[in-house]
Design a binder for these strands. Structure first.
Lengths: 341, 341
DNA sequence: ACAAGTATTTTACGCGCGTAAAGTTTAGCC
DNA sequence: GGCTAAACTTTACGCGCGTAAAATACTTGT
């Protein structure tokens, strides 16, 4: 770096001996210029330290390189992990990802979509809040901006949906639990935030019927996204009232299970698959924290990488002009055997 | 909304009966126009559905309304929580926050700063990686962009530092542990990512000396940001080798403590302050997850809200033109008594 | 070496808004 | 009602780059 800061592309062009439009073309796509030219530009780039003004770039461009990534709750490590994956796929493909969280609030979700609009993104990867989402606003947004929906599906909105196969999820872990001990009852929130919860309950019911067992669902009260606390309080109540019909409890998700494990601990109930354990508890999601519960949580994990990669690739294909009919991709989860069940 | 989309400010101006420069002024600061004018604009805004083009806005403006928020690891709920707080303070003050994570990688941290530069932000709230950070790059960035450093301090860089008082933190919880049982030994990473860790160790040593006890530090191997696993593996090893000199263990941070609790569970060691518990374990940070460990973790919590508010306000003041000398603000933590110690 | 085809340069305009300056209207006050 | 200061309108220019069209230079194959 010669220290001398370049003001604009014009200046950089003359200093590098290339015309400005060609420089512009290079920044738009380095492979669109002859390699000899590219080398000259890149050499100049190193000694001159110039970066185009992104505002001027995007202002008069039909399509920006921005990609929005929206998750319902960033403080949930599960979403943070997916967001990180998506971010890196975008970066690798030459896009500029921007991260947003709805923080569990439908009003904020609408605000995020508004902000996103003004960013004029080439595309958006969006995990909706679910039940609480403003469907109309979501639909309108998807009509205006190329959007891939992930994690939880809301109608047939956007270009495509990518997520996990909740039916396979629950069927698989239910099967495991039935084969290794008492058939499980199902522990869930009465009014779950996420539509996946309904699929999981249904899948549990189906699986139990298939296996010839009587299903039993325990639905606990609680609003919002504080799943652990809901699981803990609901767990206490259910334990006190003897609402668990068997010694095996399949939770609708890992965070609920984490709360239930805390409740069990507080009630001095030994959890696990050992001889002297009173109950077994399993979760669903492969939450980053599930390894560190006591006992470590048996769960079924999302294919984090595959989901993010599939979603990202679908978006890039759509941005690239590939038109394909709406499609739902649901990837299978992998059972993670640990000590809790 | 009349449905008819407005193309630009010119059009919106004529349709609302106000001149374009005044509209521009309004968007820059709604309070800078007469209230009667403001009402007219806002009425038009509702029926016309117009939003200024942010790229055109920022391209020829000396100062944007953008604020960058950078954390070292967004998948750590502790940082996610602080980031959420900061984000909301920015929004409330009329800024446009953008969230970035270094994902524990120094190279990424540098990349984030590069991206941030091109965003021409009015200011940045940055929590550095710490030990692994590229000091020179950080310093250069802070020279170019008004930056408040938070969480962990690296030299006297930026406009100011806001974080927690690690000396108070550790002294306070050490005091508590000494008063309620055996004096603690200190469990930490040998090469911690975060400089706060050094302060905490030192504070532990000071406190123990003050109280007239012999300090004992257990430093475990492990690189990176997978603190739970480092705590778990290190915990196993330390337990097997009998390296814990007392029955009370103060961990350098909550995530390490979470790992240690898992190790204890796996070794069938009962943790807590009950009669038949073998050891007590305490953490530091008030990690969102600490409530749900088994047993729930006694810890000392950051003043999340106060830290974010102080940092945000310092930045806004600096953006507003208030020049003040570099200053370090360290807020006290609050002891959270739970069952683990 | 020559043709065809592609890459680059030149030239020129426009994007949507910030901003400054000068003139005009409005509001507030005695 | 007349004064002043503030707010507004008009006019005009510029920001840094995208992009289109036409002219020119280069590469490639034979």
């Amino acid at each position: 770096m010669t220290g001398s800061k370049i003001r604009n592309m014009e200046e950089f062009a003359s200093l590098s001996g290339i015309s400005r439009p060609t420089i512009s073309k290079y920044f738009n796509n380095p492979n669109s210029v002859r390699s000899s030219t590219r080398n000259k530009i890149e050499a100049a780039l190193e000694r001159l330290e110039y970066r185009p003004n992104i505002y001027a770039m995007n202002q008069n461009r039909k399509l920006t390189k921005n990609v929005g990534v929206v998750v319902p709750l960033l403080s949930d490590p599960y979403f943070a992990e997916i967001a990180r994956n998506l971010e890196q796929h975008c970066l690798a493909a030459g896009y500029r990802p921007t991260l947003f969280s709805s923080h569990g609030d439908p009003a904020l979700e609408v605000e995020v979509m508004d902000t996103l609009r003004s960013l004029k993104p080439a595309g958006v990867l969006l995990a909706p809040l679910g039940r609480a989402s403003d469907r109309a606003a979501l639909k309108k947004f998807c009509d205006d901006v190329p959007t891939i929906i992930f994690d939880s599906s809301v109608d047939e909105i956007g270009l495509a949906f990518v997520g996990s196969d909740n039916f396979q999820f629950t069927a698989h872990i239910t099967d495991y639990l039935c084969r290794t001990g008492e058939p499980p009852c199902f522990f869930e929130m009465k009014t779950p935030a996420n539509p996946n919860a309904h699929r999981r309950r249904q899948s549990y019911l189906n699986a139990m019927e298939t296996f010839g067992y009587t299903p039993h669902v325990i639905s606990v009260d609680g609003e919002g996204w504080g799943f652990e606390e809901i699981g803990r309080l609901g767990g206490h109540e259910a334990l006190e009232q003897g609402r668990f019909s068997t010694n095996t409890i399949l939770c609708s998700n890992d965070r609920l299970a984490i709360g239930l494990l805390t409740a069990c601990f507080e009630k001095n109930i030994r959890v696990g698959r050992c001889e002297d354990c009173a109950i077994r508890v399993a979760g669903q999601d492969g939450h980053p924290h599930s390894r560190y519960t006591c006992p470590p949580l048996t769960t079924i994990s999302h294919a984090y990488n595959a989901v993010s990669q599939t979603a990202a690739e679908a978006l890039f294909a759509a941005i690239g002009g590939q038109v394909s009919p709406w499609k739902s991709t649901r990837l299978e989860g992998k059972l993670i055997l640990r000590d809790s069940a």
